[in-house]
Write a protein that binds this DNA or RNA. Structure first.
Lengths: 216, 216
DNA sequence: CACCTAACTCACTAGTACGTACATTAGGAG
DNA sequence: CTCCTAATGTACGTACTAGTGAGTTAGGTG
């Protein structure tokens, strides 16, 4: 092993500093939106000063893009870990839906960032090379499941992988993204623990019912 | 009739001024979010000056709340117009889903405002008396349909009205609210005309399939 | 027609928020 | 051990932005 067992606490550590900036910035942007986020506030919540943010990221905008890129990268990582190809079509699609549900249940910050990006018409995402035309592994997965289900006769649907992905995502995303207005208007917090299991089962049932074609 | 046939162009017209401020403010807030919206920009887009905004609304925050209240009031109005009680349960719920789809297809600004409110954890909505505990007529409608469907044996579900409302809303809302990030990532604009009819049918099929219980 | 008030204009301020010039130091390379 | 550069701290400038003080006029009313 090298000289330092765990690199305990160097006073100067670019990687750590950059990582900490991104971490805090993600929270700040997710909480307040792009315009509402304060660079000074990000700096105040760190060991570091604001100068470092500009030293490493150059501008508020580039910091924001870096946060987006990191967040998307993490999500991709998680998606790649999904493994349902050994299941029969019906159970495969149900499991995928439930895992997507879990995935949205965690990653609240990511959902907020996506929401914020949509307010800005995804301007910043488009400006990022790292995020451009970077399809999602999930699509291939869904396509494989749909093909298998159609072949076996379990599924009767004309929807393609993107449609089904949207069907699943919309439910999972909405529940978290709109929890506050929904809660304020209907007096029910859809993200509260007592609703979790029921809603999780609901996505699964919903997709299965849909791809079976029983709504036509 | 009174002296003026159509009140052609008074130089001083409080109602008109207030309405114009709200209209322009709605666009500005919807486009840029609360923090990103510029009071000066709102003023610049009108016949009026910024001073008038403060004269009538007092602050940026109160203007924003006024915009929210107006937007919600309009949506309520539209919801009240829905009339599906003469239909059989299956067709009633399908029609309701399709009308909800249409409703979200228009009212893009409203969707953005809701999205923005969720970023702020619905703080401003909660601060408004006009919007507090103001349930939605749609819920009663859904409940009636669910009861009828269960009684007739067409429906087999344990989900209640709020659940089903969320099921329908999430799809319709997501398609519009997330169109930009979804488009950037999957190269398909779900709000483009060529997808409209297919997706509209999809919500209907989805809810019907679900309430029939064919996913369990 | 005179008056009075609500409606409106203009110029201005205080505070804030992004970004930077400049000074300083840690710590690896030779 | 020395030096050199990447990394960091301090203090400040500039531009913008919400909000206001004070004066002006339209137009309904008696």
């Amino acid at each position: 092993m090298t000289s330092q067992p765990a690199a305990p606490e160097r006073q100067r550590d670019p990687d750590r500093t950059k990582a900490e900036i991104l971490e805090v910035a993600q929270q700040e942007f997710a909480r307040h939106g792009y315009a509402g986020a304060r660079v000074d506030e990000i700096a105040a919540r760190m060991r570091t000063t604001k100068r470092m943010i500009y030293y490493y990221f150059g501008s508020k905008e580039r910091l924001y893009v870096a946060v987006l890129e990191k967040a998307y990268a993490e999500v991709r990582e998680m998606e790649r870990a999904i493994e349902v190809e050994h299941l029969a079509p019906v159970e495969a699609i149900r499991t995928l839906a439930e895992l997507t549900f879990d995935h949205h249940d965690l990653h609240r910050d990511f959902i907020k960032l996506v929401t914020i990006e949509n307010i800005h018409q995804a301007d910043y995402i488009r400006r990022s090379q790292a995020l451009a035309n970077l399809g999602t592994p999930v699509l291939d997965l869904i396509e494989a499941i749909l093909d298998a289900g159609t072949a076996s006769g379990d599924f009767v649907t004309e929807a393609d992988a993107i449609d089904v992905h949207m069907l699943i995502s919309s439910f999972c995303f909405f529940r978290v993204a709109n929890q506050h207005t929904f809660g304020a208007l209907f007096g029910r917090d859809m993200t509260a623990p007592e609703h979790r299991a029921r809603l999780r089962a609901m996505v699964g049932d919903m997709v299965v019912a849909y791809v079976r074609g029983s709504g036509a």
